[in-house]
């Protein structure tokens, strides 16, 4: 797998550390009433087959956090943006 880092260009997969689903939103409160949200956020996974947005840290490169869009069945990489751009775009969509 080759990942197109927006800062470094196309780099091999071993330079990246993956952290799973980027589409989920971290709860914003610690209020006990938010326990269900936290449970869902920490433990449950959609775990899709196919198109998947995932966090990737370019730990062996520029060290920025990215969101890579990849196919979990074929390993085809569709693209990568910075995590900041991804979250902003998500905010704009919401």
């Amino acid at each position: 797998m080759l990942i197109p880092c927006p800062h470094c260009g196309t780099r091999p997969v071993e330079e990246f550390t993956f952290l799973g689903d980027a589409s989920v939103t971290r709860p914003t409160t610690n209020d006990p009433s938010s326990m269900e949200q936290w449970y869902d956020y920490v433990y449950l996974r959609n775990n899709p087959r196919g198109r998947f947005d995932e966090y990737a840290h370019h730990s062996g490169g520029c060290r920025s956090w990215l969101v890579v869009t990849r196919n979990t069945e074929t390993h085809e990489v569709y693209g990568a943006v910075t995590a900041r751009d991804y979250t902003r775009a998500k905010g704009a969509r919401a």
Binding site: G20, R70, E73
Partner: peptide
């Protein structure tokens, strides 16, 4: 390998 996958094959970095 360290990333979500439904492909029954991995990549070379883990082989190494």
């Amino acid at each position: 390998d360290g990333y979500n996958s439904y492909a029954r094959r991995g990549n070379l970095p883990m082989v190494e």
